[in-house]
Design a protein around this nucleic acid. Structure first.
Length: 943
DNA sequence: GAAGAGCCGTT
DNA sequence: GACGTACGGCTCTTCT
């Protein structure tokens, strides 16, 4: 990566690094969770911290001897005068970021780094000017920027460092790299950008023209000027599009040209760095509550500037840049004696708390004692519920890891199991449920561990989802994995015939679990979420593990029979649609449908999609069908199309179930994702068993394919009635609503009678439906417009319904308002059991983002509390079934419903146990109402 | 082959 | 001018 500096170019005087300050600050701000980086007083510090560490990284790897940081200044630039909408959609920087910019500049000053800003110019122009200056003076120049406009600066002496998805994989954009990626040279890049446009900056390009076509034209006509000259010769839609937008393109080109002649009043000699004002820096970092590690790392990188400018390359680095990740010492276990020896040596580490004095001191929590004496466990392999597998298992205590290849496990299984049983409450894992599947494939069983880094990460940041351990580690620890790899090399036990690279990787993973645990345990403790983790998430993981392992039995014949039937229906509908259309349009292609409906048949489109084309979704099609009643062709086509959509979807769902059946046991083993839904709900994948049709009879029939397996006699379906509304009643303390639930009457009818002020018996079905929709809409932040749409009533009517509703249930209104207000103030919402969710969007200047965040803030605590309650119910139900020593078992959860496979003779008892667990999962001011049903398949179990 | 758009199933 | 939460997943289209 860094060879560019070493070869050739011996005549350069040195390297100048020019940094786009805003770009880097933005990136740092959005890459790091603000909630994890703020001072006691509430000042966000994520951008400052990120800026410092990211810049340190670049200094370490590029070793420049001159450095300058450019910033934009407030107020417009000459560009706004040319193009008023310039950067119009780009959201104004969040308040939390703006307050950090002065801190960043203060930090740069303390670090002895020059920063430059100038009224009326963008950072980009300053960068261009600085780069030109560096080049003139004979320096190699690096430009660190996430803005592609900087590509025009690239030449033999100027390289742009452009961040990829992860900041650490900076791309060195050289002339060749630009050529490879865009097929034009750097000098022509602005031409290409002008044609393509820049969505991020609200600069429209030529619709339909992307990088590819722009490059083709540029190469054909020599550049934008040539293209404009020959615009008439370019054929096709794209040519037409170009001609229509030519003025815009010319303007774009004017605007994206960077000025390289801004008068900055400084020279290259002013851009040395490394004269760190240690006192000022120390004071600043202390006030920002940065730890000593950050301090020393930053200090070292920036001090290097001084050394670099007088002394040449010294190889005194890279050693401790990865001190977050200590690769354990590996002991390969081949037999029981070796295992016993390791366990013996581990005893000290597990017994007495070790000294962890090099940790960041700021979160010295009580859990530190326990943390210091835990055993990390990591099993590598497949955790797929149907067929898990394992290649290697590792245990680590106090930096010493026992490595057990899968082949040796059978020989030491009893001793290993004894160890696991004896120390489960000290074990730390990443993904208890997944690890349990892998262990199960070895015949091992892991009782609830003390800590799970995957679950902990989820509680700390429910919006973030890492899909691998590596990703979680790099996200939460900002690791430099490459360095960690280097460190790993020297320290391994290379005995045995295992590929050392593989083992190194496993040890690295082991180290990640350990490092994540250290970091996240402190967070969880600080946020007082240990209870949530240990008495809800971890136990429910265990229940889910069992559910996934058992799977759901299906009637395979029934499924294939249904699939065939839906396939015939879909085919028939397609045939009919084709006849009306007069052509064989692909009914699954929205694009082709648009052509038929709106061009060919000339129907008047209703709504647009977000990308601007006309929607062909079901509700629009229904609208069109109603409006085209006299038009037999259109109406016939629409009806057949809707029918096709419906049946084809059902066919698809059934087929996906068929594909998911495990041939070994004829059952479907879904995976319940416990760390995906930001509200705290579970989700189900591979296949998704939480979206099996239920709304109409035809789809619901699919549920009849879910049956009790061999040795079982029926299925129990048990679900909560109106949990979310009950939670609202409880949390709001609204007496009228509470009474509505306590009365035990038909809830929606009862509420309707209160809202409309008429006796329960006089409530019409319509009134009940309207009130019911209103009730459910509340928790979703439903607008009156949306309510009107759903109920097909006028907005005025919906408005009246809403005000009457709130007049009746005043405290509900107050409560919902308070949720949003609280979230705005604290930055997050909280469920009944302390599950948090953050809403940075509440501060957004963008209305849509803010509105969405408000709806989220309204919904999250309610949906989340319901999820908490269901999880508790599952834990209790599962315990109760185990304690009663029955064979019946929970097999599915669909948010507010549990499906239980019932063993012969257990129906009555198990129904009682499950019902009881669900009814008593939470202590609310209203009863938790549960309804149950039993049947010989899932459909029949409905009630 | 990946990425994005569009659509649609559940609660 | 848009306009209900939370998800997973299929198909088509476009670009690499």
């Amino acid at each position: 990566m860094s060879e560019s500096r070493d070869d050739a170019q011996t005549k350069t005087r040195g390297t100048l690094l020019v940094v786009d300050g805003h770009s880097l600050a933005f990136r740092a701000f959005f890459a790091l969770p603000a909630e994890n980086f703020s001072t006691q007083a509430g000042q966000a510090t994520n951008a400052v911290w990120g800026f410092a560490t990211m810049l340190s990284q670049v200094l370490d790897s590029e070793k420049p001897d001159h450095l300058a940081v450019a910033f934009d200044m407030k107020g417009g630039t000459f560009r706004n005068e040319m193009l008023p909408q310039y950067k119009g959609t780009r959201e104004a920087a969040p308040e939390d970021l703006l307050t950090q910019l002065p801190l960043i500049q203060k930090m740069l000053t303390a670090l002895g780094v020059t920063y430059v800003e100038k009224q009326g110019y963008e950072g980009d122009d300053i960068i261009a000017t600085l780069a030109a200056m560096g080049e003139r003076s004979g320096y190699d120049t690096l430009v660190l920027s996430g803005d592609r406009d900087a590509f025009q600066l690239i030449d033999e002496r100027v390289t742009v460092l452009y961040p990829g998805h992860h900041f650490k994989d900076l791309k060195h954009m050289t002339p060749q790299a630009v050529e490879d990626k865009y097929h034009v040279g750097p000098a022509q890049y602005p031409d290409l950008a002008a044609l393509r446009g820049e969505t991020a900056d609200n600069i429209p390009g030529v619709p339909g023209v992307g990088d590819g076509f722009a490059a083709k034209w540029i190469n054909q006509y020599g550049g934008l000027e040539g293209i404009i000259e020959h615009a008439d010769e370019i054929g096709g839609k794209k040519g037409e599009s170009l001609r229509e937008n030519i003025e815009q393109v010319k303007l774009n080109r004017k605007v994206n040209a960077l000025r390289r002649d801004v008068d900055l009043g400084i020279g290259i000699e002013d851009l040395t760095f490394g004269e760190v004002d240690a006192d000022a820096l120390s004071e600043l970092f202390t006030s920002l509550e940065f730890g000593p590690r950050t301090r020393s790392k930053v200090l070292k990188s920036f001090n290097a500037g001084k050394q670099a400018s007088d002394a040449a390359d010294k190889h005194a680095d890279d050693e401790d840049t990865s001190d977050d990740l200590r690769i354990p010492e590996a002991v390969t276990i081949a037999d029981e004696a070796a295992l016993a020896a390791w366990i013996d040596s581990a005893r000290d580490g597990l017994g007495s708390p070790a000294d962890n004095s090099d940790d960041e001191p700021r979160n010295r929590a009580h859990c530190a004692d326990v943390m210091a004496s835990t055993c990390a466990l990591y099993a590598e392999g497949s955790s797929k519920p149907g067929n898990p597998g394992c290649s290697v298992l590792m245990l680590e205590v106090g930096g010493k890891a026992a490595v057990l290849e899968a082949g040796v496990i059978a020989g030491v299984r009893p001793a290993l199991q004894r160890f696991l049983d004896g120390h489960a409450d000290r074990i730390v894992v990443h993904g208890y449920k997944e690890q349990s599947h892998i262990l199960a494939s070895l015949g091992l069983d892991l009782a609830e561990p003390w800590f799970d880094t995957k679950l902990a990460g989820y509680l700390v940041q429910p919006d973030y989802h890492a899909d691998s351990l590596e990703q979680a580690a790099s996200h939460f620890l900002q690791l430099q994995l490459d360095n960690a790899d280097d460190v790993a090399q020297g320290q391994l036990d290379l005995s045995g015939d295992v590929d050392p690279a593989d083992q190194r990787k496993d040890l690295l993973h082991m180290a990640m679990v350990r490092a994540l645990a250290d970091m996240l345990a402190a967070k969880i403790d600080e946020r007082e979420q240990f209870r949530l983790l240990q008495s809800i998430e971890l136990p429910v993981s265990h229940v889910l593990f069992g559910m996934e392992q058992v799977g759901a039995s299906v009637d395979f014949m029934r499924l294939t029979e249904m699939r065939d039937r839906f396939a015939v229906d879909a085919r028939d509908a397609q045939e009919t649609a084709w006849q009306f259309a007069g052509s064989r349009v692909n009914l699954q292609s929205p694009k082709q449908l648009q052509a038929v409906l709106f061009d060919d048949m000339g129907l008047k489109p209703t709504k647009k999609t977000k990308s601007g084309s006309y929607t062909t979704n079901a509700s629009a099609l229904q609208d069109l069908a109603v409006r085209s009643v006299g038009n037999e062709r259109a109406n016939g086509f629409l009806t057949a199309l809707l029918r096709h959509r419906e049946t084809n979807k059902l066919k698809q769902i059934v087929q996906s179930l068929i594909d998911a059946v495990n041939p070994d046991d004829g059952r479907i083993h879904t995976t319940f994702e416990q760390t995906v839904a930001a509200t705290g709900r579970l989700s189900s994948v591979d296949p998704n068993l939480q979206n099996i049709p239920n709304r109409n009879a035809e789809g619901r029939e699919i549920r009849s394919a879910f049956v009790p397996g061999e040795g079982y006699e029926s299925l129990l379906s048990s679900d909560y009635s109106q949990v979310e509304l009950r939670i609202m009643a409880d949390l709001s303390g609204d007496d009228a609503l509470i009474e509505a639930f306590r009365s035990g009457a038909d809830f929606h009818k009862y509420v309707a009678s209160l809202v409309y002020g008429i006796p329960v018996d006089d409530i019409t079905p319509d009134q009940r439906t309207h009130v019911k929709a209103m009730s459910y809409g509340l928790a979703y932040g439903l607008s009156t417009y949306g309510l009107a749409q759903q109920l097909k009533i006028s907005p005025g009517e919906a408005d009246r319904l809403k005000s009457q509703y709130f007049a009746t249930f005043g405290k509900v209104h107050e409560y919902l308002e308070s949720l949003v207000a609280g979230a705005r103030e604290k930055g997050y919402t909280e469920t009944m059991f302390g599950r948090c969710r953050y809403f940075p969007g509440l501060q957004s200047p963008n209305r849509n983002i803010r509105d969405a965040a408000e709806r989220g803030a309204l919904n999250a605590p309610i949906q989340g509390s319901a999820a908490d309650i269901m999880k508790i119910a599952m834990i209790h139900a599962s315990d109760a079934l185990a304690k009663a020593k029955v064979r019946s078992r929970i097999i599915l959860q669909i948010h507010d419903e549990l499906v239980v496979e019932i063993a012969p003779g257990e129906a009555e008892q198990v129904t009682g146990l499950v019902r009881d667990a669900m009814e008593h999962a939470g202590d609310l001011a209203v009863p938790l109402d549960v309804s149950t049903g039993i049947g010989s398949d899932w459909q029949l179990a409905a009630h």
